[in-house]
Amino acid sequence: GAPPLPPYSAGGREVTMKKGDILTLLNSTNKDWWKVEVNDRQGFVPAAYVKKLDSGTGKELVLALYDYQEK
């Protein structure tokens, strides 16, 4: 199953993602919540729920390892 959710501390809205989604990583300075862009929406997802990909394009991409439903 998915890892436990860290307390929400990102101070911005969250976004929903599905397992297998490829998201653009915008900011990973917060260790628990990373800012991503998905379907032209920006928001935060739990860092433990995604994995960085080596895209080779200069853009940082992450793979959704679990479904996440915004609150």
Rank of each mutant, 00 (worst) to 15 (best):
N27D: 15
P3L: 06
D21E: 13
L63H: 04
D32P: 01
V50E: 01
L61C: 07
K18V: 11
K52L: 14
V36S: 00
V50P: 01
D67K: 02
K51D: 07
R13T: 11
Q42W: 10
T24H: 07
K71I: 10
V38A: 15
K18Y: 13
G58N: 11
K31V: 13
K18C: 09
S28I: 05
Y66S: 04
L5N: 06
G43N: 02
T29A: 12
L23F: 07
L65C: 05
T24F: 10
A47V: 04
K51F: 06
R13V: 13
L61Y: 11
A48P: 04
D67C: 03
G1H: 13
A64Q: 00
L25S: 01
S9T: 11
P6C: 03
Y66Q: 03
P6R: 01
L53E: 04
G12V: 07
T57K: 12
E14R: 14
E14S: 15
K19V: 08
L26P: 00
A64M: 03
P3H: 05
K18S: 09
T24Q: 09
T24I: 14
A10F: 10
V50K: 00
F44Q: 03
T57S: 15
K51Y: 07
G58W: 07
A64H: 01
A64L: 03
E37R: 08
V45C: 04
G20P: 00
E14D: 13
Q69M: 07
V45S: 00
S28Y: 06
S28A: 15
L25K: 01
L65K: 03
L23N: 01
D67R: 02
S55Y: 11
E70P: 15
Q69G: 14
Q42G: 07
P4V: 08
G58R: 08
T57E: 14
S9P: 15
T29N: 14
P3Q: 05
V50R: 00
K35L: 15
G11L: 04
W34L: 04
D40P: 03
M17L: 07
G56N: 13
D54R: 08
I22S: 03
R13P: 15
E14C: 11
T29Q: 14
K18W: 07
Y8R: 12
Q42K: 10
Y66F: 09
G11A: 14
L5M: 09
Y66D: 03
K18H: 11
D21H: 04
Y66V: 05
V15Y: 04
L65I: 10
V36A: 02
K18N: 07
T57Y: 12
A48M: 09
D21Q: 13
R41S: 12
W34D: 00
V38P: 00
T16I: 06
N39E: 15
N30C: 09
T29D: 15
G12Y: 09
V62L: 10
Y66C: 05
L25I: 06
V15D: 01
V15E: 03
G43M: 06
K35V: 14
A48F: 04
D32L: 09
Y68Q: 01
Y68C: 02
P4C: 08
Y8M: 13
D54E: 14
A64G: 03
P4N: 07
K18D: 04
T16Q: 09
F44W: 14
T29K: 09
I22Y: 05
L25C: 05
Y66E: 04
W34C: 02
A10C: 12
F44G: 01
